[in-house]
């Protein structure tokens, strides 16, 4: 059985075919093989959330999936979410509110927050600060103390709800 696997997947809208080592994690694959260094490696054991990205529409830990598992999958990283404009309002809110300092957790934090915002929009609700804190509870930020992040996410939730109604 091979230690290398051929995979074809869609990454940020682009079709990618690569041969990867079976042991290579998804986050190492997007960083090392595709040069998408916006997904960060913080712990490699699924706790810090710096490698949070989207696979088939839901957020995952990039360190707790293998690239080999992503044959046929749709992967979206912060680069894709940025270029499509999907999280432009959230990014602007983070910038305005200084909801990031070193920025290392930020791509994962934005990706996680966007999932909550989408879920909230789907049920026509604005998440509470506690719900926001709970949804980002798997994303470690050492710089901000979280308060500014909660403010930024909350402001976007309200703005999106307002824009919709």
């Amino acid at each position: 059985m091979s230690m290398d696997i051929d995979i074809t997947l869609t990454v940020n809208g682009e079709r990618v075919t690569e041969r990867v080592e079976a042991r290579k994690t998804l986050v190492d694959f997007v960083r090392d093989d595709l040069g998408l260094t916006g997904s960060h490696v913080g712990c490699e054991h699924g706790v810090c959330g710096a490698c949070t990205m989207r696979v088939d529409g839901v957020i995952v830990r990039g360190c707790l999936m293998l690239a080999a598992q992503c044959d046929g999958a749709t992967v979206e990283t912060i680069e894709g979410l940025s270029d499509s404009g999907e999280v432009a309002d959230l990014q602007a809110a983070f910038e305005q509110r200084n909801a990031l300092q070193c920025g290392y957790c930020t791509p994962g934090m934005l990706t996680a927050a966007q999932e909550l915002l989408q879920q909230a929009q789907a049920r026509n609700a604005v998440p509470s600060r506690d719900e926001i804190r709970e949804h980002i509870s798997g994303n470690y930020c050492r710089c901000t103390g979280y308060h500014a992040i909660v403010d930024a996410v909350e402001s976007v939730a309200k703005a999106r709800a307002g824009a919709k109604s």
């Binding site: 260094t37 916006g38 912060i78 680069e79 940025s82 910038e95 930020t106 791509p107």
Partner: peptide, 19 residues
Amino acid sequence: VPRPNLQRLTQGRGQYISD
């Protein structure tokens, strides 16, 4: 004043040494 260098970080376009 918002920090002038933030957009590259929010877009995942910063360059850390690990990159």
